[in-house]
Write a protein that binds this DNA or RNA. Structure first.
Lengths: 155, 155
DNA sequence: CGCAAAATCATCCGAAAGGGTGACGACACC
DNA sequence: GGTGTCGTCACCCTTTCGGATGATTTTGCG
């Protein structure tokens, strides 16, 4: 968490320094102060939104209520939302995060895309993947997806 | 979480203070522009964070899920054999061989395993894969499998 | 608070996958 | 015979994956 602030400081400082350095040469002459301010505003607003999104990432409480329902007819219902087999997931020791990444793997995303989607580094995604694969007894992501579907962990 | 915002604010304030302090020594004349930029930056960074917090505020989703227990197999249906959508296959120009390789990919096999299974070289498998991926608009095998299932080409 | 689990990130390295190109033979069709 | 498609295979190159390992941070819980 401190790292974000650090990044912010660095980026901000660099930005300001750059602006200070360049403004007298390129910007101020032909552009107004308002434009300069707008540029800074947009940049910092974007960064702030990113930071806000990042630090409030997913704090979700899942309460699973197991209810036995008689024979759902496949293809009948209104695309009945998929419900992962939490029991099996726990038995395999698969964490929620790992399952989340697994579902993105099943959607055909690359590690990099998953990393971007979840605001984490590619290395983290790889770690989660490796662990999930190990728990599923899979050597490849295609195999992991297949296993996940077989076990009712993925739709 | 408030802590981060606090730290951020402190760092931001420090940044402004530093800027103000330094600018007084070197850029006294144009200091109003610097101050203006810094203020705008801080303001909009704060605004961005606030916005980020706002739009992801209700991340604390309490999900109550009802686990549907799949119907006990009545033993009646003879596991209705899957029939690929030949029409769509032809429309996409996917050959039978490519679909065959694709199904093995979907089973989680590696190219080498597929090559062994089909008594062809690994290069051949890769060629078929590439062509099939191109026709499916997929960049990865996981994506290809997903597309194949969506299009009714794979079970 | 202190501990354990989980999440995050990094680095190294080898293997697998994917893209591109070119080539060759078989086979069908006109 | 010429043409086109399909299957087969090879080479080169880049990207991606996966495994192993270690470290740090965050978080939930007793």
């Amino acid at each position: 968490m401190k790292r974000h602030v650090l990044i912010f400081g660095l980026v901000g400082g660099l930005l300001v320094a750059t602006l200070q350095y360049t403004q007298y040469r390129f910007i101020v002459i032909e552009h107004s102060v308002e434009l300069y301010g707008a540029l800074v505003a947009i940049l910092f607003a974007t960064f702030g939104i990113w930071l806000g999104l990042r630090i409030t990432r997913r704090r979700e409480t899942i309460v699973v209520k197991e209810v036995l329902v008689p024979a759902p007819e496949p293809g009948g219902g209104p695309a009945s939302a998929f419900l992962p087999d939490t029991a099996r997931q726990q038995r395999l020791g698969i964490t929620a995060r790992e399952l989340e990444i697994l579902s993105l793997v099943a959607r055909g995303l690359s590690n990099r895309e998953i990393a971007t989607e979840l605001f984490v580094s590619e290395n983290t995604v790889k770690t989660h993947c490796s662990r999930a694969f190990a728990k599923l007894g899979a050597a490849r992501r295609t195999q992991a997806v297949r296993r996940g579907k077989e076990l009712g962990l993925l739709p």
